[in-house]
Amino acid sequence: MQFKLIINGKTLKGEITIEAVDAAEAEKFFKQYANDNGIDGEWTYDDATKTFTVTE
């Protein structure tokens, strides 16, 4: 399945899409990606669109 991350950071904005087995695997990848890029904010997930959003 495809999952999307929308980044609304103070210094980094954009979107990335990955293939993952389930939402838990996608969330783990996205949170590591955000951590690696210094993004720390509020997370939301929309199951209907398979979209995670992080907002700083």
Rank of each mutant, 00 (worst) to 15 (best):
M1V: 06
M1C: 02
Q2A: 12
Q2I: 10
Q2S: 13
F3K: 00
K4V: 07
K4N: 08
K4D: 03
L5P: 00
I6Q: 11
I7A: 05
I7P: 01
I7L: 15
N8C: 07
K10F: 06
T11L: 06
T11R: 03
T11D: 05
T11A: 04
L12A: 03
L12G: 04
K13M: 15
K13Y: 07
K13G: 09
G14E: 09
G14T: 07
E15T: 12
E15K: 07
I16R: 10
T17S: 15
T17Q: 06
T17H: 14
I18R: 10
E19M: 15
E19R: 02
E19F: 14
A20M: 05
A20E: 10
A20G: 12
A20N: 09
V21K: 14
V21A: 05
D22V: 08
D22G: 11
D22Y: 14
D22N: 08
A23W: 15
A24W: 14
A24L: 08
E25I: 09
E25N: 15
E25R: 03
E25F: 04
A26Q: 00
A26T: 01
E27T: 14
E27P: 00
K28L: 07
K28M: 06
K28S: 15
K28R: 11
F29A: 05
K31H: 10
Q32D: 06
Q32G: 05
A34K: 02
A34W: 03
D36N: 11
N37A: 13
N37R: 12
N37I: 13
N37F: 06
G38Q: 07
G38W: 13
I39V: 08
D40R: 08
D40I: 11
G41A: 03
E42C: 08
E42M: 15
W43F: 09
W43M: 14
W43S: 01
W43N: 00
W43T: 01
T44S: 07
Y45P: 00
Y45H: 02
Y45Q: 02
D47M: 11
A48F: 13
A48D: 07
A48M: 06
T49A: 12
T49K: 05
T51K: 12
F52Y: 15
T53R: 13
T53A: 10
T53E: 04
V54E: 00
V54M: 13
T55K: 15
T55H: 11
E56S: 09
